[in-house]
């Protein structure tokens, strides 16, 4: 718990919001929190799809080239 308090203090100092008034602090914290939350959420939603697409693309390049040309010709 003490470590967490210390960590929060460091966060206050490094970002500079130590000197801000409480309501400004809460604005900064909520903006930062929502940004981080959105990053996490979007990565949770979109990363699996991107990974799957990328895998398909690369496997198409490496493994399945003759098939695909055949498919094109047909």
């Amino acid at each position: 718990m003490e470590y967490l308090a210390w960590l929060y203090y460091q966060y206050l100092l490094v970002t500079g919001i130590y000197v801000l008034e409480p309501w400004e602090k809460s604005i900064f914290n909520s903006v930062l929190f929502s940004a981080v939350a959105m990053v996490i959420y979007t990565s949770y939603v979109f990363v699996p799809i991107h990974v799957r697409l990328a895998l398909e693309f690369f496997s198409a390049i490496c493994g399945g080239q003759p098939e695909s040309t055949m498919a094109l010709m047909n």
Partner: peptide
Amino acid sequence: VLTYVGYGILTIFGYLR
């Protein structure tokens, strides 16, 4: 870098105020 970031944040809040 962190110092500049800190000044950046404070400047943004300065403009807000």
